[in-house]
Amino acid sequence: MDIPSSLAIISLAALVHASFQLSVSVLTLLSGHSIGAKHSQARLLRLTSSFLLGAAAMTVLLLSFISLMLIQLYGNITPQVVWAAACGLSVAVAVCIWLFYYRHDKGTALWIPKAIAVYLNDRTKATKRSAEAFGLGLSSVIGELLFIIAPLLISALVLIQLPSVWQLTGIAIYTVISLLSLLIVWVLIGSGHSLGKIQQWRESNKYFLQFVSGAGLIVLVVFVYTVEIVGSSVGFH
């Protein structure tokens, strides 16, 4: 696969990752607790920036870890069966997203293990320092691992085929794009927008976001399957 196509796949996978909402929910709650506790705007920005850095760090770590595991297992040439398995897993995740992503109640509660939701809720309330917010950012990415595993796996499979410099570029592109939704909310909160309006928008559009996440993943799978499996079967490479 050529470099532009690889980077396009990584970008699309990162966009799918960006459409997942757990970190955005945690960021919204964290900001709400911080503003409600009459913390200064500077402290609010410190906390939210640390959260963002935590989420970025965990995304880089996860993507690097999965890539390293794949390199250790298969080297630079991934067997087609692994591509097929990754595509199958991604389709399953996409179907799960369409069926279960949001709980069928009011609000934006997600279909993640209750213990994780309670833990994140409690930690968000207890977070007072930047280091804690950083840790919360790390945990929130882990909390949605069930869903982000699909775009991460496909990106890792694409990344390991690239030359070293482009691998780093790919990781950077994935991280920045996957944080886009968090960055947008961070800018909105930092510029004084009401959390109520942000949360209202998220709730009103939650089923649209759910559909887009699943559909994005399906499009990604179709593209990857066509290039990597169908393409190589007909001698495209």
């Binding site: 709650l29 009011k106 934006t108 509660a109 809720n121 959390l195 109520g196 949360q199 209202q200 709730e203």
Partner: peptide, 14 residues
């Protein structure tokens, strides 16, 4: 109303 909305949402955001 907006504060009421957020108050209601507190436990159902995550």
């Amino acid at each position: 109303p907006e504060a009421a909305y957020l108050y209601e949402q507190n436990r159902i955001t995550i």
